[in-house]
Every structure is written in C-alpha cells, then in structure tokens.
Amino acid sequence: MKVSVDMGSCHGHQMCAIAAPEVFGSDELGNAKVLIEGVIPAELEGKARRAEANCPERAIIISE
C-alpha cells in the first residue's frame, strides 16, 4: 500500500494525522504531508485506511 494526498482538495483538517500520525503530518500551512513516501508498513495499513475514511475532503489517495 502507498498513500498520497490530493493537495488541491486538502483543506488542512488534519484528521488524517489524527487517525494515522505515523503516516501523515502537517506542512507549514497545516495541510497534510505524507511522512512515508514508499510502501506503508503492514501494521500501519489499518490506520492509513482510517485516515482515508475520515478525511472530510476525500483528499487521501490509497494505491495498492
């Protein structure tokens, strides 16, 4: 699993970072920043999916 953020849709709710703090953080403006560029460790996949589900803007993109 890999993750990315559609920065055109992200409005900085930070709900991804709350759901998966190991995977998502904040840039200077408070918008989402992906902390793991490569493959997401298996034990964090559940959290990453939760981040995707909780994003109010549907800005988290998960690719398998």
């Binding site: 409005h11 900085g12 709710h13 930070q14 709900m15 759901a19 408070g30 939760r50 589900a53 909780n54 994003c55 109010p56 803007e57």
Partner: peptide, 20 residues
C-alpha cells in the same frame, strides 16, 4: 469511534482556521 468524518470545523475552503 474509529470512523468519524465529522464536520465540526466545517468543510471546504473555509475549514476553521483555528481548529488545531
């Protein structure tokens, strides 16, 4: 509650700037 896509701070371009 794990699945919580709440909008207490709004949605879209006016998301509450002070939410954090």
């Amino acid at each position: 509650r794990e699945h919580n896509r709440h909008v207490a701070f709004g949605s879209g371009i006016h998301r509450c700037a002070g939410s954090n």
